[in-house]
Design a protein around this nucleic acid. Structure first.
Lengths: 144, 144
DNA sequence: TTGACATCATTCAGGCTATGAATCATTCTG
DNA sequence: CAGAATGATTCATAGCCTGAATGATGTCAA
């Protein structure tokens, strides 16, 4: 490790974002267990747009609707989420955050926030880094 | 999307690094196809430490040795890599980058470098962001 | 109203990645 | 030399994700 000049690939932001992102997700996954990252994502989206159909949720998250079924089943078993049949269109399940779900989301957010300190401890200008990350995320159409 | 205040989770560096990293890896994967990201990682490590055993390679990359078998088989089929039986310890396979492999690695590095421009186009202070990312990567023990 | 078509949630089969245990060859150690 | 340790490989398995098929419901045009 630590050969500055030799590794042109390892010097790119693309490569570093990928690897750092993967490691961060690993740690984050452990921090929020037994919740899965995608489930935290569901809670996040629902906290922003209370009451979405599974289709809309899938679109917003960029995953196949079929993937949500199992994830929501588990969230429902945890009592974090409720599925309510839409009265105006009885094909749709409206997914709603429960009070417990809101708390669970708060726990995830707290865990992530706690990770930030450790994550940024080596960064000379954390605010500039945060800003850059936020701008990239915004450019990708993520909720910022 | 784009609700600044409501999403405490989506404002954390941990969450953003994870999602941005995943999206970046997706794009990067398409850019280097038919090579897989882990295979590019192999080429990177080999370009830094020419001639490693598969055990050492696995340790350096943080993956199970058994995973390398298939990845190396493919790289070998592409002519990017050679396995040479270690004469001093005939259990070990020394993995060596071929000339073609070195070129392939260059192609990956170029693709990643090309992505950087697009990636950082919205960032106000790209150099500060790069520096921060590099510092985080270094803190995680990655080759920087 | 009815029939054709679209849409929603769900199930199912399959692909890809990654791991750990088992195996075989080889090396090291007492 | 016998037994333990190590290296590469194969195999079975788990997790995540997708797309196709299914059944229920909704929409629209004739």
């Amino acid at each position: 490790m630590n050969d500055v000049a030799a590794g042109a690939l390892s010097a790119t932001a693309a490569f570093q974002l990928g690897t750092v992102g993967a490691i961060t997700t690993d740690r984050y996954t452990r921090a929020i267990a037994p919740l899965k990252p995608k489930q935290a994502g569901i809670l996040l989206v629902l906290s922003l747009f209370e009451g979405m159909s599974q289709q809309d949720l899938a679109r917003k998250m960029g995953v196949a609707p079929s993937l949500l079924v199992g994830l929501l089943d588990e969230l429902q078993d945890m009592g974090a989420v409720r599925r309510e049949r839409d009265e105006h269109d009885r094909r749709r399940q409206i997914v709603v955050l429960t009070e417990a779900g809101r708390e669970l989301y708060g726990t995830c957010a707290a865990a992530a926030k706690a990770m930030d300190e450790e994550l940024l401890k080596d960064v000379a200008d954390p605010e500039a880094f945060r800003a850059g990350l936020r701008q990239i995320a915004a450019g990708m159409g993520l909720p910022v």
